Amino acid sequence: MRHATKFGHKKKLNSRIGKVKCVDIHERETWILAALYSGKLIIFDYSNQNTIKNIEVSSFPLRCAKFIENKQWIVCAGDDMTLRVYNYNTFEKIKSFEDHTDYIRYIEVHQTLPYILTSSDDMTIKLYDYENNFEKLCSFENHIHYVMMCKFNPKDTYIFASASLDKTIKIWGVQNNTSVVTNPHFTLTGHTKGVNCIDYSSSGETSYIISGSDDKTIRIWDYHTKQCIQILTGHTQNISCLIYHSTLPILVSSSEDCNVKIWNSSIKKI
Rank of each mutant, 00 (worst) to 15 (best):
M1T: 06
A4W: 07
L13V: 06
R16G: 12
R16V: 08
I17N: 08
V23C: 14
T30L: 08
W31P: 01
I42F: 00
S47N: 15
Q49T: 13
N50R: 15
N50I: 07
N50F: 07
I52C: 09
K53I: 11
I55V: 15
P61F: 08
K66C: 05
E69I: 12
E69R: 12
W73M: 04
I74H: 01
T82P: 03
N87W: 10
K93I: 11
I94A: 05
K95V: 03
K95C: 08
S96K: 13
E98K: 15
H100G: 03
D102M: 12
Y106E: 07
E108I: 03
L117Q: 00
S120Q: 06
S120Y: 06
K126A: 13
F134W: 11
I144P: 02
I144E: 14
H145M: 10
H145A: 15
M149L: 06
C150A: 15
K155E: 08
Y158M: 07
Y158G: 10
F160P: 01
A161V: 04
A163N: 05
L165V: 03
D166Y: 01
T168L: 02
T168H: 06
I171L: 10
W172V: 05
T182M: 11
N183R: 14
F186T: 08
T187K: 11
H191N: 13
T192A: 14
G194V: 11
V195Y: 00
N196V: 04
N196A: 11
D199A: 08
Y200F: 15
I210C: 04
S211Y: 08
G212H: 02
G212C: 11
S213K: 02
K216Q: 14
T217C: 13
T217Y: 08
I218P: 07
I220Y: 01
I220R: 00
I220S: 01
D222F: 03
H224I: 10
I229V: 15
I231P: 04
Q237H: 11
C258S: 14
C258Q: 10
N259I: 05
V260R: 03
S265L: 07
K269P: 01
